[in-house]
């Protein structure tokens, strides 16, 4: 019995560690907390750079979470909060950058590459289809890649 209890406590320890890492903020209600979590997960910590504001333990992430929380409490919209942070830390803080001329390559580059690849494949397939009846199979497989 005692052994089982010890195991149970050991199993619960990680939960305690997790609870400690979160900055306790006095949310008014569950909806506000969900909104805060969602928003801070979309924002990037300027210091550690590959962590969201929600995950990071850097001092600046702590301060920015506090700032976001206070702005939510003050009735600011998500867009207003994002604009506030972009004005100070540039678009770097957005995990999802806006679609605008300077980010077109980022947004559409992969699709353009995919289309270019598809075009190359299509051309190759057509060319081979045209060649197939005239050339013998043995020659074809050795010469082409």
């Amino acid at each position: 019995m005692r052994r089982a209890l010890v195991w149970l406590i050991l199993c619960l320890l990680p939960v305690l560690a997790f609870a400690q890492a979160i900055q306790p903020l006095p949310f008014r209600d569950r909806a506000e907390e969900v909104r805060f979590q969602k928003l801070s997960a979309e924002l990037r910590c300027p210091m550690c750079q590959n962590e969201t504001l929600a995950d990071s333990n850097a001092p600046i992430a702590h301060d920015l979470r506090r700032q976001v929380f206070e702005m939510i409490q003050a009735g600011k919209s998500d867009d207003e909060i994002k604009t506030y942070l972009v004005d100070r830390y540039s678009q770097f803080v957005l995990y999802k950058p806006p679609v605008e001329p300077s980010t077109w390559l980022l947004w559409f580059g992969p699709a353009v590459l995919l289309a270019a690849g598809a075009l190359v494949v299509a051309i190759q397939v057509r060319r081979r289809a045209r060649q197939a009846p005239v050339s013998t199979p043995a020659n074809d497989t050795e010469d082409d890649w």
Binding site: I60, Q67, R88
Partner: peptide
């Protein structure tokens, strides 16, 4: 660190 945020200080 509040004024620091206005200046975009992060470290």
């Amino acid at each position: 660190g509040r004024t620091g945020i206005d200046f975009g200080v992060y470290a």
